[in-house]
């Protein structure tokens, strides 16, 4: 059963990822990205990360991809681009070599050090739907609001800075037709 879930989710992830880089229409690429993000959410559930799976669907597939589609439609680039032309002749072979090199190196490192990963924490609480609900959320909340509360506060500052910066970046200055 676990194997079936893994194989199906891995197929979703890989098909979506390849779709993002080969589809010529940006809208199709964004929809392929949603497929990948859902596959990753399934993997999160399979790895006892229930809260993160929900956040993955809501924030990534919900907000971020919608933002992408919004910008694509706003800019009017929702038409296919010509992918057959290639300004630099060596670019795609070089990119393939780099990609395969990265994959090969990481896989070699993972396989050779697979016995080095040992248990060091107190263990993840397994979800208990009969008792007092999903303990993964409680455990994650204790970690975020306990050990990492300073980092949590800093991320709120980061979000405010990002929103203010984006408003300033995209604002049209009234009266001056310079950047309109």
């Amino acid at each position: 059963m676990e194997l079936v879930v893994f194989v199906l989710a891995a197929a979703m992830i890989l098909v979506g990822a390849v779709g993002v880089i080969v589809r010529s229409n940006p809208v199709h690429a964004a929809l392929s990205l949603i497929l990948t993000l859902f596959g990753v959410a399934v993997m999160f559930v399979a790895q006892n990360a229930h809260f993160l799976a929900a956040v993955q669907v809501i924030v990534y597939a919900g907000a971020i991809v919608v933002l992408f589609l919004f910008v694509i439609m706003l800019l009017g680039v929702d038409r296919s681009e010509d992918l057959s032309s290639e300004p630099f002749k060596v670019q795609r072979p070089l990119a393939a070599i780099v990609g395969l090199g990265v994959i090969g190196l990481v896989v070699a490192a993972v396989v050779s050090s697979r016995d080095a990963i040992t248990v060091r924490g107190t263990g993840l609480n397994v979800a208990d739907t009969v008792g007092d609900g999903d303990t993964n959320i409680k455990q994650l909340a204790r970690s975020v609001f306990g050990d990492y509360v300073v980092a949590f506060e800093v991320t709120s500052v980061l979000l405010v800075v990002a929103v203010v910066g984006t408003v300033l970046l995209t604002r049209r200055v009234k009266g001056s037709g310079k950047d309109s």
């Binding site: 990360a49 993160l52 933002l67 248990v119 204790r142 970690s143 975020v144 991320t155 910066g165 984006t166």
Partner: peptide
């Protein structure tokens, strides 16, 4: 995080998602 039994990995993913959202906006 699952393999090592440490919730810190999931906490890191939580922060990565927040930073990714801010990065996409900018």
């Amino acid at each position: 995080a699952k393999k090592m039994g440490d919730i810190g990995g999931q906490t890191t993913v939580f922060f990565v998602m927040v930073v990714a959202a801010a990065e996409v906006v900018v």
